[in-house]
C-alpha cells in the first residue's frame, strides 16, 4: 500500500465516489507535511463504510500504538484491508463479521477498553489477519520511515560508506586489526 493512496482532501471531489473515507490533518510543523499532497488528507475506501473504517483504524492503533505516528500511516493499513475486501466477497464478509465482534462504540472507547476487547478475540482469524496486515503495511511506507528515522535504501545515494555508517562516537573506535581500513 503506497503513500499515493493518501490524497489531498480537496481533490476528493474529482474522484469516483467511494463507500467510505478516512480523513485527517497533519500538523504544519510535521516533517510528514512534505510527504503527502496536502495537510488535509483523505484515504478513500471501496468496501468499508466510514464507521467500519474508523473501527479498524482504532483497532490498528491499539495493536501498534505509536502516539506520535500520524493517523495517515494507520489509514494505509485500513486501505490495504479495504482493498482486499473489495477484491473478494468472501474476504469482505469475513472482515465485516470481524468488525462487528469489536462491538458498538469501539472506536470511541478508551485504550484500556479496546485492549480488553481485543484480548477477548486475540485467537480469531480476524484479529490475527489484521495484526499481520498491520505489521506488513504500517512500517513499510515513507510516513513510517520518516517518523522512525529509518533512511531506507542507499544504493541510489552511493550507499552509507560516506554517509554515516561509522559515525558513532559514544563508544571507542575499533582497532584496525579487528576491523579494516576505509577504502581508498
Amino acid at each position: 500500500m503506497s503513500v499515493e493512496h493518501v490524497v489531498s482532501f480537496d481533490r476528493r471531489s474529482f474522484m469516483k465516489v467511494a463507500t467510505g473515507v478516512i480523513t485527517g490533518v497533519i500538523a504544519a510543523t510535521s516533517p510528514l507535511a512534505a510527504l503527502v499532497p496536502s495537510r488535509a488528507w483523505a484515504v478513500d475506501l471501496g468496501a468499508l463504510t466510514d464507521a467500519q473504517g474508523a473501527a479498524l483504524l482504532a483497532m490498528i492503533r491499539t495493536i501498534a500504538p505509536h502516539d506520535a505516528l500520524d493517523s495517515a500511516a494507520y489509514a494505509l493499513v485500513v486501505a490495504a484491508l479495504d482493498k482486499d475486501a473489495a477484491a473478494s466477497a468472501a474476504v469482505k464478509s469475513d472482515l465485516l463479521t470481524g468488525i462487528t465482534t469489536l462491538g458498538v462504540g469501539f472506536a470511541q472507547s478508551p485504550e484500556s477498553a479496546r485492549i480488553a476487547q481485543l484480548k477477548a478475540i486475540e485467537s480469531s482469524a480476524f484479529f490475527q489477519g489484521v495484526r499481520v496486515k498491520t505489521l506488513l503495511v504500517l512500517y513499510n511506507n515513507p510516513i513510517a520511515f520518516a517518523h522512525f528515522g529509518y533512511e531506507g535504501e542507499a544504493f541510489s545515494k552511493g550507499g552509507y560508506l560516506f554517509r554515516g555508517f561509522n559515525d558513532l562516537k559514544w563508544l571507542p573506535e575499533v582497532p584496525l586489526a579487528d576491523s579494516g581500513p576505509m577504502p581508498v
Partner: peptide, 21 residues
Amino acid sequence: VTRRHGMPGMPACNNFKVMYA
C-alpha cells in the same frame, strides 16, 4: 573473503562498534 588471503577486513560500522565494546 575478507580477512583471508589479502582481502582487507570490513571497516567497523556503528552496529559493530557496539558489539565490539
